[in-house]
Amino acid sequence: NGGYFAAANLDGSGAGGDKYVDDNGLTGMIYLEAYDITTGEKKEQYLNSARKCAHWLMNCGLWDDTYGGGFWWSTGKQNKPTQSNALVMQLFLRLYKITGETYYRDWAVSINNWLNSKMYDSNTGLYIWMIDGGGAGTKHTELFTYDNAIMLEAYLIWKDAMNDNSYLAKAQAIGNAMNKTLWDKGYNLYIFHTKDVRITPAWCGWGSQAMIKLYEADGNTAWLSYAKGNIDAINNVLRSTTSKGYYQFAGLNGAGRYTNMEGVDQAWMQRLQAMLSKYK
């Protein structure tokens, strides 16, 4: 019935189990990045692959009335998080911009309304982690760097897709709120989240991507300073001096550094440094 499983063996066998909304939203966005840089038949194939991701999301039953709307994290229906919903909003907005199909726009509007009614914390100007549990649900108010970076990026896409410049100001407001609440001034980096003050390449690094994209949108070089400081801190704390790979987690000063390395962290740091190299 479509959709991507979370994992498989290297030979492609063994795929199964739950499917995750964030995996499928991000996969669709990656297809669209490939669409942006290709031509001809291949370009159309990438667009069609992104649309298949979106159409699975629309028809998989993971958006329902529990907690007033929103996508579940996965087919296991454990919780409804900000990051999954915001990634799907990005995908629908980009597809609306490319195709003009209004059902993508309508889905994006529904997600945005739900996020702002259920997940927005007016005290900090940021979006909370997730809702789970019975009844009206329990809100988990931890504030994650990558959740809010994804929301910031979604609003930059909204600005272009909907031709609404007010969303640049909304993205800038999230950026300023991130730099007030999620930036550690002592170590010059973004923390994992407000109840787990550690550093991790992908999920803290996402803050740098958001700041680079803000700079690309408004030309304010202050955003690049945050992006570079965060990347430099990750390199200092989490990069192996021998293999040059990145460890998964550590305290802000390097204490308790994990010994394992994950593919997502290597890929994300490669991506971030390629993005920043255009400007620094």
Rank of each mutant, 00 (worst) to 15 (best):
T82F: 02
W183L: 07
I174K: 07
L91Q: 08
Q266D: 07
D121N: 13
A149H: 10
T138K: 15
W203S: 02
T39F: 12
L10W: 03
W56D: 01
S240D: 15
D65W: 00
N113P: 03
W107F: 08
G2V: 05
Y279C: 11
T221E: 15
L62T: 05
G17L: 11
A136Q: 09
L95C: 06
Y127P: 06
G175Q: 00
C60Y: 04
N165F: 01
A149N: 10
N165H: 04
A202W: 08
S240I: 12
L47C: 08
V88P: 05
K170D: 05
S166P: 01
G245I: 10
G175R: 01
N123Y: 08
G17S: 10
D164R: 04
T27I: 14
K118P: 00
N165C: 02
T138M: 09
N112Y: 06
Y146D: 07
L182C: 07
F249E: 11
L252N: 04
Y35W: 13
T194I: 09
I111F: 04
D22S: 09
I131H: 07
Y246M: 11
K159R: 07
T138F: 08
I199V: 14
A173T: 04
L224M: 13
T145G: 04
G100R: 05
M178G: 10
L276I: 13
Q270F: 15
A154I: 01
G137F: 01
K180E: 13
G245D: 13
F192S: 10
W73A: 00
A108I: 06
D160R: 05
L91K: 09
Y67D: 00
G135W: 01
A173N: 07
T200D: 09
G17K: 10
W129A: 12
Y20C: 00
L32D: 00
G125K: 00
T145P: 05
G3C: 08
Y155C: 06
K42M: 14
I37H: 07
C53P: 10
T194H: 09
K180Q: 14
P81R: 05
S84K: 03
K180M: 11
E142T: 10
W158Q: 07
